[in-house]
């Protein structure tokens, strides 16, 4: 016999819903993953070009050192840092480390601010 669906309240106004930090970094984990996925061809091209020849190597270096290149590098390093830090957080939660609400919120804040900071430091150090 089919069950009659229970009428549950719905509130889907994304502009008014207040997300807790762990929810925000979870969405960003997905978004950064999608961004990294889409950047795979670019990464392979950079790898290919840089290994191919002396001139290709310098082309890649000057590309990454240009203002636009540095912005793109920062954004990709941010995506990578966020995906990596949030990923480590999820692996720890999988083995039941930091599951408690206060600990989970603290680590979420750490990821949210640690990732762009790490990306900024890496961009500065690498270019």
């Amino acid at each position: 016999m089919p069950m009659t669906p229970v009428a549950r309240p719905r509130f889907l106004n994304l502009l008014q819903i207040r997300f807790p930090v762990p929810a925000v970094i979870s969405i960003m984990h997905r978004a950064s993953g999608a961004a990294l996925l889409l950047s795979i061809p670019l990464m392979l091209w950079l790898l290919d070009r840089s290994l191919e020849s002396e001139s290709g190597f310098h082309e890649v270096l000057s590309l990454l050192g240009s203002p636009g290149g540095r912005v793109l590098l920062f954004l990709l390093l941010w995506a990578l840092s966020h995906h990596l830090l949030a990923g480590i957080r999820y692996l720890l939660i999988d083995v039941e480390v930091g599951v408690e609400k206060s600990a989970a919120r603290r680590s979420a804040w750490l990821v949210a601010f640690g990732a762009p900071l790490l990306a900024l430091l890496l961009t500065g150090a690498l270019t």
Partner: peptide
């Protein structure tokens, strides 16, 4: 990333 930070390849041949 650590390798790139600690000893970045100086030229194409090294890379």
């Amino acid at each position: 990333l650590a390798l790139l930070l600690v000893s970045p390849p100086p030229d194409h041949a090294a890379w």
